[in-house]
Computed example of a mutant assay.
Amino acid sequence: MNLLLLSNSTQHGRGYLEHALDTVTAFLPERARLAFVPYALADHDAYTARVRAALEPAGITVRGIHEDADPVAGLAASDAVFIGGGNSFRLLSALYRTGLREAVREAAGDGLPYMGASAGTNMAAPTLRTTNDMPIVQPPSFETLGLVPFQINPHYLDPDPASTHKGETREERLTEFLEENDVPVLGLREGSWLRVEGNRARVDGARPARLFTRGAPPRELAAGSDVSGLLATAPRFDTPAR
Rank of each mutant, 00 (worst) to 15 (best):
M123H: 02
G84P: 08
A46C: 13
G85L: 14
D68Q: 09
D22K: 08
T131K: 02
E106K: 06
G146R: 05
V24T: 05
Y16F: 15
S9E: 04
H155Q: 04
L178E: 10
T23P: 03
D22M: 02
R105T: 12
D110P: 00
D226P: 00
H66Y: 02
H155C: 02
S7Q: 04
R33E: 02
N132A: 13
V24K: 00
N8C: 15
A125Y: 14
A76Y: 06
S88P: 08
A69E: 12
Q11P: 05
R202K: 06
V185A: 11
R52Q: 15
T144A: 09
L211G: 02
N2C: 11
E67Y: 13
A76E: 07
V137T: 13
P240R: 06
P217Y: 07
A206D: 14
G167F: 04
L186R: 00
S93F: 10
A69H: 07
R90L: 07
G85E: 06
E172T: 08
R31M: 00
T233C: 14
R173L: 01
G84M: 13
A124S: 05
A107R: 03
P218K: 05
L112C: 06
A73H: 06
L188C: 06
E190M: 07
T130K: 06
G99P: 15
A209H: 03
N8L: 05
R90G: 05
H19E: 10
L194V: 03
A209N: 02
T23L: 14
G205T: 09
F237V: 02
P218H: 11
L5N: 01
M123Y: 11
V81A: 10
T98E: 10
